[in-house]
C-alpha cells in the first residue's frame, strides 16, 4: 500500500480551489472559472492514468480503456467502482456512480454541467448562484476523466449531470458522466433532456 493522507485533505483543497476560482479570481466569469477548474482536473487525470497504467499492456479498444476507468481507476480514487456503464456503441458512454464520494457531503441542486461550454452560464441570477457553485465542483472530476482518457489516446468531451433521489433525507447523490468521443455531443444533450 502506498502513502495515504486523510480524505479531508483532498476535499479541503478541492473546495478551496473551486471557491477561489469562482468567488475570487473569476467571480464575474463563471465560464472561465469552470474552464480553469476543468483544466486542473485534466492535468491530474492525465498524470494519474499515466501512473496507474504503467505496468499494463496497451488497451485494445476504447471499451477496454473505459472499463479500466470504471474499475481500476475509479477504485484508486474513490474505493469503489462505477455502478453502471452504458454505451450506444457509437462512441458515447454513460458512467453512473450512485454514491459519488465528493458529493455525498454537499447539498445539491440539479444543474447540468458540460465541459463543452456551449451553454452560457453567465446569465446567472443571484438565486441560482448557489446552484452554480455546487455544479462547479463537478468540473474537476470531469476534467480528471477527460485527462485520463486523453492520456490513453481517447480524446473526448465529458459532461456530468446529477440529480437528487427524490424525498430522501440522506443526500444520496447520483452522478452520471457522459463521455462523448467524436462529434455526437448534440445527441447527448438530447438524450439528457429526454431523461429529465
Amino acid at each position: 500500500m502506498g502513502k495515504e493522507v486523510a480524505e479531508s485533505c483532498v476535499e479541503s483543497v478541492m473546495m478551496e480551489m473551486v471557491s477561489a476560482y469562482c468567488n475570487r479570481f473569476y467571480a464575474a466569469k463563471p465560464e472561465l472559472a469552470a474552464r480553469r477548474i476543468e483544466a486542473i482536473g485534466y492535468q491530474v487525470g492525465h498524470q494519474l492514468s499515466e501512473r496507474y497504467t504503467m505496468e499494463r499492456p496497451r488497451f485494445s479498444d476504447h471499451l477496454e480503456a473505459i472499463k479500466f476507468i470504471c474499475k481500476d481507476f475509479w477504485s484508486e480514487l474513490f474505493k469503489k467502482q462505477i455502478d453502471n456503464l452504458k454505451t450506444n456503441h457509437r462512441g458515447t458512454f454513460v458512467l453512473q456512480d450512485n454514491r459519488f464520494r465528493w458529493l455525498t457531503r454537499m447539498s445539491i441542486d440539479p444543474v447540468p454541467v458540460d465541459t463543452d461550454s456551449s451553454q452560457d452560464p453567465s446569465g446567472a441570477t443571484p438565486e441560482n448562484k448557489a446552484e452554480q457553485a455546487t455544479s462547479m465542483h463537478l468540473y474537476f472530476p470531469c476534467g480528471i476523466i477527460r485527462g485520463a482518457l486523453s492520456n490513453l489516446g481517447i480524446p473526448c468531451a465529458v459532461s456530468a449531470d446529477m440529480s437528487n433521489l427524490p424525498a430522501c433525507e440522506l443526500i444520496v447523490s447520483k452522478l452520471t458522466i457522459l463521455f462523448v468521443s467524436g462529434k455526437n455531443l448534440v445527441d447527448i444533450f438530447f438524450t439528457l433532456r429526454e431523461q429529465d
Binding site: E4, V5, C9, V10, V13, V44, K79
Partner: peptide, 23 residues
C-alpha cells in the same frame, strides 16, 4: 479517519499551483 492515496492529493495540489501560476 477516511484516507485516500496520497498521489491524488499531491497531484491535485500540484496541478492547482501550476494553474495558479499561469492565471
Amino acid at each position: 479517519v477516511e484516507r485516500v492515496n496520497a498521489e491524488l492529493f499531491t497531484l491535485t495540489y500540484g496541478a492547482m499551483v501550476r494553474q495558479l501560476l499561469t492565471d
